[in-house]
């Protein structure tokens, strides 16, 4: 790769909480490979609003 590594600025967030390691360990990667299309994302949002 010839492009430089992206430098990401640490955000200043007023309404956010840092996740502790034990909390990070609770978020797993699903063994599902369906592409999350914009339609599926919209359906997720709509289902939650109901």
């Amino acid at each position: 790769m010839s492009t430089k590594v992206k430098i990401i600025a640490r955000p200043t967030l007023k309404n956010a909480r840092l996740l502790r390691p034990v909390e990070l360990n609770g978020y797993h990667f699903a063994d599902k490979h369906t592409v999350l299309t914009p339609e599926l994302l919209a359906a997720m949002g709509a289902a939650h609003r109901k």
Binding site: R10, P11, T12, L13, K14, N15, A16, R17, L18, L19, E23, L24, Y27
Partner: peptide, 13 residues
């Protein structure tokens, strides 16, 4: 780092 955004609008930041 993982964050939990209580105000989802901050995703823009």
């Amino acid at each position: 780092q993982g964050y939990e955004l209580t105000d989802i609008n901050e995703i823009r930041l």
